[in-house]
Amino acid sequence: MSTALLDVRDLVKEYPGTTAVAGVSFSVPPGICFGLLGPNGAGKTTTIEIMEGILPPTAGEVRYRDAPLGERFREEAGILFQKTALQDFLTVRQCIALFRGLYARGLDVETVIRMCALEKLAGRDARKLSGGQQQRLLLAIALVNDPAVLFLDEPTTGLDPQARRNFWELVQSIKAQRKTIILTTHYMEEAELLCDDIVIMDRGRIVAQGPPRRLLHEHFAEVLLELPRQDFPPQARSLPLHILEANDRIEITTDDLEGTLRTLLAAQVPLANLRIRPPNLEDLFLELTGTELRP
């Protein structure tokens, strides 16, 4: 018997002429925030929609509490889609009440309004909310059944930095209640801040899986040197260094900072614009796929 809350087994989703998900398997233990990362078109949303029971897979299966997705899953799952429209002419409170009425168990409407800091907006027409406020309302709707598992599909895409940070705080407070969260994002900062375990997807396949710190430790030495591409002469590309080429910059990872700097100076690479920083998930994605996460 599996101890995982969700088991994804050999998932395949094919559309005419394209394979969106090409044999993906992973498990999500209870009580963690699990991240599905990848660029646009990697298959994240398709994978999460199959996990949500919205989209049927071409092959493979998703199991919840060691059983196929069914009535119990629908009662216990909370979902925030990448894009959702609500019924017109309803206030924030009425929208939440509508969804509360669809579940046998859940939280009181006023409690959810408080949880998502919507008290001042409760009587407002839901169509007149800003992007950040709208996302808080959609999160409130996803929480209305007090879910055991919460799916967040790119919840902060399109939000301004302040609204994004506010949303992260909300998610962290939900995470503190030991709820299982499945998060898809292409913001690495978001994944690093919120996720305990991640899967990195590219072209419908998993290219790395594990806790973010462990993955970074496994793939990188201690520091990363970053140079503007125009400062890096073509002949320097043949230097005996671990060089990654991003769109507008060159990245070099090393555990011998002094030796690397000496090599660069000897090759007459200007270091005026050099940045030294620890590697992050964005670098990991570049390392694993050879492409940047956000083109």
Binding site: E52, G53, I54, E71, R74, E75, A77, I79, F81, K83, T84, A85, L86, Q87, F99, L102, Y103, A104, I141, N145
Partner: peptide, 16 residues
């Protein structure tokens, strides 16, 4: 209209 706006898809994710 509900289907085109995605509202039906959201309802589908509930026990309805």
């Amino acid at each position: 209209r509900y289907r085109k706006s995605g509202f039906l898809k959201r309802l589908h994710a509930t026990p309805l």
